[in-house]
Amino acid sequence: QAPETKIVDKSRVACDGGEGALGHPRVWLQIPEDTGWVECPYCDCKYVLKGSKADAL
């Protein structure tokens, strides 16, 4: 199944896999201003900063 994409309001987000005990260790991710998105290294969930150029795609 394809990784999930989430639109977020802040450039710093936490990801834990979203499945409680079945998820992964919580990691904090920083969305770079130049790209407007970041992917979780564990679950490949893509976080897109709302209003960024990546959000316009």
Rank of each mutant, 00 (worst) to 15 (best):
Q1F: 13
Q1D: 08
Q1A: 10
Q1M: 15
Q1K: 13
A2I: 12
A2D: 09
A2E: 11
A2H: 14
A2C: 15
A2S: 11
A2T: 10
P3Y: 11
P3A: 11
P3M: 13
P3W: 11
P3Q: 13
P3H: 15
P3R: 14
P3T: 11
E4S: 15
E4C: 15
E4A: 14
E4L: 15
T5P: 12
T5S: 08
T5V: 15
K6A: 02
K6M: 11
K6E: 04
K6P: 01
K6V: 15
K6I: 14
K6N: 07
K6F: 04
I7D: 01
I7L: 10
I7R: 07
I7F: 08
I7A: 05
I7V: 10
I7K: 06
I7Q: 02
I7P: 03
V8Q: 02
V8Y: 01
V8W: 00
V8P: 04
V8E: 02
D9F: 12
D9Y: 13
D9E: 12
D9K: 05
K10N: 11
K10S: 13
K10F: 13
K10E: 12
K10A: 09
K10W: 08
K10G: 08
S11R: 12
S11Q: 08
S11N: 09
S11D: 07
S11E: 07
S11F: 06
S11V: 12
S11H: 07
R12K: 07
R12A: 08
R12C: 14
R12V: 13
R12Y: 12
V13A: 01
V13H: 01
V13D: 01
A14L: 09
A14H: 06
A14W: 11
A14Y: 14
A14E: 08
A14Q: 07
C15L: 00
C15N: 00
C15Q: 00
C15K: 00
C15F: 00
C15D: 00
C15M: 00
D16N: 04
D16I: 10
D16L: 06
G17F: 04
G17N: 03
G17R: 01
G17L: 01
G17Y: 05
G17V: 04
G18F: 07
G18C: 15
G18D: 04
G18P: 13
G18Y: 07
E19H: 04
E19D: 10
E19P: 14
E19G: 15
G20Q: 05
G20L: 06
G20N: 03
G20I: 02
G20V: 05
G20A: 06
G20D: 04
A21P: 12
A21Y: 09
A21Q: 10
A21W: 07
A21R: 09
A21D: 10
A21V: 11
L22M: 14
L22Q: 10
L22E: 05
L22Y: 10
L22V: 07
G23K: 14
G23P: 07
G23S: 14
G23T: 08
G23E: 07
G23R: 15
G23Q: 12
H24G: 04
H24N: 02
H24L: 02
H24K: 02
H24D: 05
H24I: 03
H24F: 05
P25K: 08
P25R: 07
P25S: 05
P25C: 09
P25G: 05
P25A: 10
P25Y: 05
R26E: 07
R26N: 06
R26K: 10
R26M: 09
R26D: 07
R26Q: 06
R26V: 08
R26A: 02
V27T: 04
V27K: 04
V27Y: 06
V27H: 03
V27M: 02
V27D: 06
V27E: 05
V27R: 01
V27Q: 02
W28P: 08
W28F: 06
W28Q: 09
W28D: 06
L29C: 08
L29P: 06
L29F: 02
L29S: 02
L29E: 03
L29Y: 02
Q30G: 03
Q30M: 12
Q30S: 10
Q30Y: 12
Q30V: 13
Q30N: 10
Q30T: 13
Q30F: 13
Q30K: 05
I31D: 04
I31S: 01
I31P: 04
I31H: 04
I31T: 01
I31K: 01
I31A: 02
I31E: 03
P32G: 04
P32Q: 04
P32D: 11
P32F: 05
P32E: 07
P32A: 06
P32Y: 05
P32N: 08
E33G: 07
E33R: 08
E33D: 08
E33M: 09
D34L: 09
D34V: 05
D34Q: 09
D34T: 07
T35S: 07
T35A: 07
T35D: 05
T35I: 13
T35R: 07
G36A: 02
G36R: 01
G36T: 02
G36P: 02
G36N: 02
G36W: 02
W37P: 01
W37Q: 03
W37Y: 13
W37G: 04
W37K: 03
W37T: 03
W37D: 01
W37F: 13
W37S: 06
V38A: 04
V38W: 02
V38E: 02
V38K: 01
V38T: 06
V38L: 04
E39Q: 14
E39N: 10
E39C: 04
E39M: 14
E39G: 09
E39R: 14
E39K: 14
E39V: 14
C40G: 10
C40R: 09
C40D: 10
C40K: 09
C40W: 11
C40V: 11
C40L: 10
P41S: 04
P41C: 10
P41W: 06
P41L: 03
P41V: 05
P41Q: 03
P41N: 03
P41E: 02
Y42N: 06
Y42H: 05
Y42Q: 10
Y42M: 14
Y42P: 06
Y42L: 15
Y42W: 09
C43H: 01
C43I: 02
C43L: 01
C43K: 00
C43P: 00
C43D: 00
C43Y: 03
C43F: 01
C43S: 01
C43N: 00
C43M: 02
D44I: 07
D44P: 11
C45M: 15
C45N: 15
C45F: 15
C45H: 15
C45E: 00
C45D: 00
C45K: 15
C45P: 01
K46W: 04
K46Y: 05
K46H: 07
K46T: 03
K46Q: 03
K46L: 08
K46M: 03
K46F: 04
K46P: 00
K46E: 13
Y47S: 07
Y47G: 14
Y47P: 15
Y47R: 04
Y47W: 07
Y47Q: 10
Y47V: 08
Y47N: 13
V48C: 14
V48S: 00
V48N: 01
V48W: 09
V48I: 13
V48G: 02
V48A: 02
V48T: 00
L49V: 13
L49N: 13
L49F: 05
L49A: 12
L49M: 08
L49H: 13
L49D: 15
K50Y: 01
K50R: 14
K50E: 14
G51K: 00
G51D: 10
G51Q: 02
S52D: 08
S52T: 05
S52H: 04
S52C: 14
S52R: 00
S52V: 08
K53M: 11
K53P: 12
K53Y: 09
K53N: 06
A54P: 04
A54Y: 00
A54K: 03
A54M: 03
A54Q: 06
A54D: 08
D55H: 00
D55N: 00
D55K: 00
D55G: 02
D55R: 00
D55M: 00
D55C: 08
D55S: 00
D55Y: 00
A56E: 10
A56I: 13
A56Y: 12
A56M: 12
A56H: 13
A56R: 12
A56C: 14
L57P: 10
L57M: 12
L57Y: 04
L57S: 14
L57T: 13
